[in-house]
Design a protein around this nucleic acid. Structure first.
Lengths: 128, 128
DNA sequence: CCTTCATGTTTACATCCGTAGTCGATTACG
DNA sequence: CGTAATCGACTACGGATGTAAACATGAAGG
């Protein structure tokens, strides 16, 4: 019984940049991914290809043959990735308490008025 | 022009465990740190010593000689570490919007009722 | 058909991280 | 005074990560 479920492996920061391109639009060829991310990060095509391979190995990305080449698509949703990373942070730093994170950000003046308003609105929404 | 300011370097997960011990109580000897963290992580004393050295090299920890040995103390406050990591997450995943993070946690059902109540109370507090 | 281009695969290599053993010096105990 | 225990420094080593070149193979064009 192989591990067929996606994403037990961790996605690194460089890899995330590649994922972002695929989350924004997919499927894409390796070249299209490179066009999307390489300039901003100063990468060569070779680097992008390596990252794509690793993501495929990690089952975070899947490939579909398209003639000679591959089309790449995300296997993990951005939402799930974001949830995982967020929870990890909350666990590691705030003992699992999301409110702890919020209190911390407030204390650190890391919340803009806009943030506060949006959070307040969100709370009101949740209360319904 | 040396870099005398603390913590430009990143603190890894294992290193954070050591920092937690020092944040909880300091200064501590290497042995005391080991007693605090090694059992829970299944580490040997050698491992803790290595992590301490790296933290000293990263200027996240400072030493004070105490006879033959050293007393270790944090040079970076836990609050600052938490702020840095939190901001990094918000930037990397939510385009810098803390409200985006909260919206996300709400959507992912990662907010308990307790969290919601506490956040609400905090908001009220901040509004004063 | 043969050469060239595109594209995935393999290999490379420096650095970081997790984990730990060994060495050398110093202190403390018998 | 000499030997054992202590403690920091140095060394080690496999895996992950960042970054990229070399290679193989198949397609496309002349």
């Amino acid at each position: 019984m192989a591990d067929d479920s996606p994403q037990n492996e961790r996605i690194s920061e460089a890899e995330q940049a590649v994922m972002e391109a695929l989350w924004a639009r997919s499927p894409l060829t390796a070249n299209e991914v490179a066009d999307a991310v390489a300039p901003a990060r100063g990468w060569t095509l070779a680097t992008v290809k390596t990252l794509l391979s690793r993501l495929v190995a990690k089952q975070a990305v899947e490939t579909a043959p398209d003639g000679k080449r591959f089309l790449y698509s995300p296997r993990v949703a951005r939402v799930d990735f974001a949830t995982g990373e967020s929870k990890r942070l909350v666990d590691r730093l705030f003992g699992g308490s999301a409110a702890g994170l919020f209190a911390h950000l407030a204390e650190a003046e890391a919340l803009s008025d806009k943030d506060l308003n949006q959070i307040e609105a969100l709370l009101k929404e949740l209360r319904k």
